[in-house]
């Protein structure tokens, strides 16, 4: 015989589960409808065929993916990966000393510096990119000043080049690198560095043998946070890049809105998504490896 309290308990557990389900249902439905469903649609479209005047003809094939093997697309993907990697490396090189400096400040100053690092991130991305046009263009601020000072005799042409794109990307995503690095460095016990110092390590060895291994999860997080948006960048190459600085984001936009080849654009998106997922998997592998190590010790 089931005791009355046991029945009550079962009923309460069910009621509890029901309440949780009702809490989650709207959000889940929304996400399924406006995130998972659109992604599935893109996948379907990527296997369809372009109509004569744009639009979609539901004629399924993998032709779009085969078309992507064309050298032009390969070059753009390669360039995107290159520029995104370059951006990530520069952000890491700039971000690590900065994050280290912040992490060693007094708590009060740390808070101030972190806010200062965050504020540009809150500022409109278009505006921040436009600022570089204003500075870098032929008759822009940099050239005007340098010419007036007599440091150069002819304006430097940086705008509309890959250099300008990388500069813009670094500028845009540097805070994404600094914050996770800061969080990781801040957690490292200062006495560990002093211990290495005490055990005859020089500065470089302290950095390479102690600091880097201990902050690896932060480094990986920062790299992923910079790499993913850089890879899919659209505004920066569109505004700062030249005719030859096209990145995947611009190509997708071009196929959708100008060439109106939605199936091809969708196939491009799927490849971009695959690259991003690859980066994410790498990230989670590295994080869980670090977690495992922490748990083991």
């Amino acid at each position: 015989m089931m005791a009355p309290s046991a029945i009550a308990r079962k009923a309460r557990k069910e009621a509890d589960g029901n309440a949780t389900a009702w809490l989650l249902a709207p959000g889940v439905l929304w996400t399924v409808f406006f995130c998972l469903l659109p992604l599935s649609v893109i996948f379907l479209v990527s296997c369809a065929t372009r109509g004569t005047y744009g639009g979609i003809v539901w004629d399924f094939s993998l032709d779009n993916y085969r078309d992507l093997l064309h050298a032009l697309y390969g070059r753009i993907f390669g360039q995107s990966l290159l520029l995104a990697s370059l951006t990530t490396i520069i952000c890491l090189a700039m971000g690590f000393p900065l994050a280290y400096y912040i992490a060693r400040l007094s708590p009060r100053r740390q808070a101030v510096w972190l806010v200062l690092v965050m504020v540009p991130f809150w500022t409109n991305f278009l505006v921040r990119t436009y600022a570089w046009i204003f500075i870098l263009r032929t008759e822009g601020l940099m050239n005007t000043v340098l010419l007036k000072l007599g440091l150069i005799s002819a304006p430097i042409e940086i705008l509309y080049s890959n250099t300008a794109v990388v500069l813009g990307l670094v500028y845009g995503y540097l805070p994404f690198m600094i914050l996770p690095l800061y969080a990781a460095i801040e957690r490292v016990d200062r006495s560990l560095i002093e211990a290495a110092w005490d055990l005859y390590a020089d500065r470089w060895s302290v950095f390479r043998r102690v600091l880097v291994p201990l902050t690896k999860p932060g480094i990986v997080a920062g790299c992923v946070l910079v790499f993913i948006p850089s890879l899919g960048a659209f505004i920066t190459p569109d505004l700062l890049g030249g005719a030859r600085s096209m990145m995947v984001g611009n190509l997708i936009q071009h196929e959708y809105l100008i060439a109106r080849d939605w199936p091809l654009g969708s196939a491009l998106s799927m490849v971009l998504m695959a690259l991003v997922m690859g980066a994410m998997i790498w990230y989670f592998r590295a994080q869980s490896a670090a977690d495992g190590k922490r748990r083991a010790s």
Binding site: A3, S5, A6, R9, R12
Partner: peptide, 13 residues
């Protein structure tokens, strides 16, 4: 916690 009602007994009153 069973007296307060935060846990439910498996049996008994």
């Amino acid at each position: 916690r069973m007296l307060a009602g935060f846990e439910t007994p498996d049996s008994g009153e």
